[in-house]
C-alpha cells in the first residue's frame, strides 16, 4: 500500500501525457496485485450518473462500496469484505491522494 503513491509517481514519469483511462488502468492493476481477487468497477461521474468504464467485476454484488475519488471519478468495490473496514479506509485515503493527479477526461 505504501508503494502505491511511489509507483504512481514513477509511472507518471514514464507515461507523460497519458490519457485518463491509462491512469485508471494503472491503478486497477496495482490494486489487483495488492489484493488479488478484488472486484472493481471504475466510473466517470456526471451529476448523478456513475458511468462504468473499466473493471473486472462481472457479478451482481449486494454490498458494494461506492466511493468518490475526485469529482470526476469514482470506484465501486463489489467485494469489500475481502479487505475489512480498516484496510478499506486506508485504501480509499491513498487512492484519493493519488487521484489528485489523475487528469480529467
Amino acid at each position: 500500500m505504501k508503494n502505491l503513491q511511489i509507483n504512481y509517481a514513477f509511472w507518471c514519469e514514464q507515461h507523460p501525457q497519458s490519457p485518463a483511462e491509462e491512469h485508471i488502468a494503472f491503478f486497477h492493476q496495482e490494486l489487483l496485485q495488492l489484493y488479488p481477487g478484488l472486484l472493481l468497477r471504475w466510473a466517470k461521474i456526471f451529476g448523478s450518473r456513475w458511468a462504468y468504464f473499466y473493471g473486472n467485476s462481472r457479478e451482481v454484488a449486494l454490498n458494494t462500496v461506492k466511493t468518490t475519488l475526485k469529482p470526476e471519478y469514482g470506484i465501486c468495490i463489489d467485494n469489500p469484505d475481502m479487505l475489512g473496514t480498516i484496510e478499506l479506509e486506508r485504501l480509499v485515503i491513498k487512492l484519493k491522494e493519488c487521484f489528485i493527479n489523475v487528469p480529467v477526461f
Binding site: 468497477r41 450518473r49 462504468y52 462481472r58 457479478e59 451482481v60
Partner: peptide, 23 residues
Amino acid sequence: GYRCGRTGNYFMEIAQKGKVHNL
C-alpha cells in the same frame, strides 16, 4: 443502476446473464 456504475458493458453483461433482477 445509473447512480451505482451499473451502466455500459457492465450492465449489458449482467442483463445478458439474466442477473439484473437480483438487484
